[in-house]
């Protein structure tokens, strides 16, 4: 079996130290954004997608499962949070909780169904399930169909932090992202993560060693979906709306693209990929449908020549794990 990530280095104390250094540098860089004059809205948006891509990467990079429907968690959590904030008028912290809970329930249901098939079928099933959900959201009244839920109040987090101030909102999103990122990092390096990697490399052997691989894959799916939901809930505060574009298959494709560009199965790759793709969309917004063509070309180029992704190539060059 040819694994998606061909050179996995053993986890050594040195690798852990490297990763923590890069993490601290990344956190400091991101924390200094409000002082740098960069448009914070752009970075916040990129952070939400970076978290989504990291959650997606947990499944593909460490579990070997390519989900082509991860937008359904983003969109579902977005709708749940938006509904809780606007209609139930809940405070932000509970709004986030409702969104994450929605994604958690959805990932249990969809995971139970899709985990029954492997490889290419798994991708097709997740894609079909997200399309099913797209049509449901198009018709159910609570999502307001094509209009989406708009004008969502941002409110005060824990009654203290005023989320309508861009700087406060930025740090709240940053904390959410870093917490999610560290959780994923912890999962990857836990005994659970090691078993997951073993399943990715050789599932029959993992089964013969006595692991119930389906349970591991299911748990990975639920973790990934729930964390993707956290990204969706945070995005509601940034965009102040929840719409059908977040559930559409093209959104799932974008997440795949971000992770592929950054590097499948690398820890920092999805973050780099998300920033690259969001920046590209920002700068090329005036070119209309050519953006789709460029995204397609990046897919083709990455798959044909650049399968390790940006971070994967760097890590490979320095023989480090990043």
């Amino acid at each position: 079996m040819t694994a998606l990530t061909d050179d996995t280095l053993p986890v050594t104390p040195r690798a852990m130290r490297d990763e923590m250094i890069v993490f601290v540098v990344m956190a400091l860089l991101l924390a200094s954004v409000p002082f740098s004059g960069i448009y914070p809205f752009f970075v916040m948006q990129a952070l939400c997608f970076a978290l989504l891509a990291c959650a997606f990467n947990l499944l593909i990079g460490y579990g070997g499962l390519l989900s082509f429907g991860h937008a359904m968690f983003l969109g579902t959590a977005g709708y749940c949070s938006a509904h809780a904030l606007k209609v139930w008028a809940l405070p932000p912290e509970l709004g986030i909780l409702v969104g994450v809970a929605g994604a958690f329930v959805l990932s249990i249901v969809t995971g139970y169904i899709s985990i029954r098939r492997q490889g290419i079928y798994f991708s097709m099933i997740t894609l079909a399930l997200s399309q099913l959900l797209y049509f449901l959201y198009l018709q159910t009244p609570f999502t307001h169909g094509e209009d989406g839920i708009q004008g969502i109040p941002q409110g005060h987090l824990f009654g203290v932090f005023d989320l309508s101030k861009p700087t406060v909102l930025y740090y709240v999103v940053l904390v959410g992202f870093l917490a999610g990122f560290l959780l994923i990092y912890r999962i990857i390096n836990s005994p659970f993560g090691e078993v997951l990697k073993a399943i990715r490399e050789n599932e029959p052997r993992a089964i013969s060693l006595g692991y119930r691989t389906d349970q591991y894959k299911f748990l990975a799916f639920v973790l990934s979906g729930t964390l993707a939901g956290l990204a969706g809930s945070l995005k509601v505060f940034v965009a102040q709306n929840a719409s059908l574009t977040d559930v559409h298959w093209s959104m799932s494709g974008e997440v795949v693209l971000m992770t592929l560009v950054g590097g499948l199965g690398t820890i920092f790759g999805p973050v780099v990929g998300a920033f690259a793709i969001i920046a590209m969309q920002q700068y090329l917004a005036g070119f209309g449908q050519w953006v789709t063509v460029i995204q397609g070309s990046i897919f083709v180029i990455c798959v044909l020549t650049f399968r390790r992704g940006v971070v994967g190539e760097i890590a490979h060059y320095f023989r480090r794990s990043l």
Partner: peptide
């Protein structure tokens, strides 16, 4: 891996 074929042809479809 089979999945690369899916990703490549998805890219072609987008183009």
């Amino acid at each position: 891996d089979h999945l690369y074929g899916l990703l490549l042809t998805f890219g072609i479809a987008l183009i």
